[in-house]
Nucleic acid binder design. Structure first.
Lengths: 274, 274
DNA sequence: CCGACCGATTAACCTATGTTGTGGCCGCCT
DNA sequence: AGGCGGCCACAACATAGGTTAATCGGTCGG
């Protein structure tokens, strides 16, 4: 992995880390990405970054902290669609819609970068590989939602819970936020319940079962997964849907346009084995 | 709506109809779209167009017939993620992934167009508005999955079922496949059950309740919705998530690149009110 | 230090939905 | 014609998960 010592700080952006797990970015692309993340704001916990029904504003990149994407029924019942972690993007395709059909709310204090949606189009034109990497990230998010749908429709409470924990572990690992099996889960049981389509009480029962069976440990917000293998097996976790495999060759053919000369020779060779 | 009598046949493509509900396409774009749908195949019912774990092939456009997108657990439990209707696209971002995390299976005989994934990139470069319209269609699909997640997590069986029927009615209306409240539902109760996360028996009970309350009628595969309003209210249906509103102005700014000269003057004015 | 509130925990009870099993209809095969 | 398989229908029973309610330990503002 090419790493210019001078620009090292850029390398540690969660989005950069995530995209790097997919393809190797050139210096130029890295710089462009850094520029996208230039305008940074901080928000306290329990802030709405976006509200159901509201018009979309800028595209946001979460740089630090947790948030949830959720939808509510008029009578107050709520479903958490997904967790938004560092390196995740909010409203990537916001230009396409008039208004948001979901809300995004911070769970912790959060650091967010934002940029105007026009830059997405700009990126598709000038940095197609980078745009493809962002599209990958978006498509992956959709795949996670579909997988959660499978959970809610066909997995038992125990399976769902196990599955979610493994998923979070995997996602956090990519951005260096989980070290051998433990991570911080800044989430109340109510939110877990809303994510898994269960009642608070039942989530509590289920977590107790997982603890009693020794698969996980909970100390405050720190969760430790003692045996990922076994937990994954309980949750029927098949990581296919996370699409963590390196970009296939044909990506180049599809997204790198003729007017974008190849400035990634080294990395291309790098990836030949995939 | 501008309609050249000579090219009328092109207008009736379901995908064209769907995209037209979003933005007005130019003649040039219409021709490009027609070209994408040039290679056509027919498949019988119960054919897998795509299998979980398999490598992606071409991008497909359903021109006629129904299919389902579904995921399965190793032990056979199955969740239908979404229904694939005429005008829907399969594997739009397939280049980005190594292999499919879901299957697509036909329910009826089906007519599908297919084209190599490279053309998506080509379209982003040469017909950005059209590409944006396809991206809209994709993002909308994701929104539907999220809404179904809300259903499975937080709606009761009766609500879910009502919601799904209204959703299908709306989607089919866009492609002229539903006329005042009735349409063909080529779907067994088993498939409905798998779509709604219920057992066959319970779907049966639930449909009977809807029939008994006079909200719907079923004759074979023909379903008639007697009172959409009331059914929508039972299902807490809020069509926000279908994003049927015309494209907002700023789409142009974001996606229409400088090198694609505006060849849609008339339609642009057309849309100014939005 | 006090009161108020929030979140976790657990028990007791309840119900929406799952399971099992039977029968009936219809289309298809031979 | 007869038999078979797929699908619908419905009844009887079983249970996963929901609801209600009570307790407890923190923590925060004053």
């Amino acid at each position: 992995m090419t790493r210019a010592p001078a620009s090292r700080a850029l390398d540690t952006t969660p989005l950069w880390l995530k995209l790097s797990s997919y393809l190797v970015l050139s210096e130029e692309e890295k710089m462009y990405l850094a520029d996208l993340e230039r305008t940074i704001a901080r928000e306290p916990p329990r802030t709405d970054l976006l509200q159901q029904g509201e018009k979309y504003r800028d595209v946001r990149i979460i740089r630090d902290g947790w948030a949830i994407r959720h939808k509510a029924l008029p009578d107050g019942r709520r479903q958490v669609v997904n967790f938004v972690l560092p390196g995740d993007i909010i409203g990537m395709y916001c230009t396409l819609f008039e208004s948001a059909d979901h809300s995004v709310t911070t769970l912790t204090a959060v650091e967010v970068a934002s940029f105007p949606p026009e830059r997405i189009g700009e990126m598709f034109r000038s940095f197609p590989r980078l745009a493809a990497a962002l599209a990958w990230s978006g498509a992956r998010e959709e795949a996670m939602v579909a997988e959660r749908l499978l959970s809610l429709g066909r997995r038992t409470a125990l399976e769902r819970t196990a599955h979610l924990i493994v998923e979070l572990l995997r996602r956090l690992s990519v951005v260096n936020m989980a070290t051998d099996g433990h991570f911080v889960l800044p989430v109340t049981q109510e939110i877990l319940a809303d994510a898994l389509g269960l009642s608070i009480v039942h989530i509590n029962r289920t977590l107790r079962r997982l603890r009693d069976s020794g698969l996980i440990e909970l100390n405050g917000q720190r969760i430790t997964v003692n045996d990922v293998r076994q937990l994954a097996s309980v949750g029927q976790f098949d990581e296919l849907y996370l699409h963590l495999i390196r970009v296939p060759k044909r990506l180049e053919r599809a997204f790198a346009g003729p007017r974008h000369q190849n400035n990634n020779k080294r990395e291309d060779d790098d990836r030949a084995k995939a």
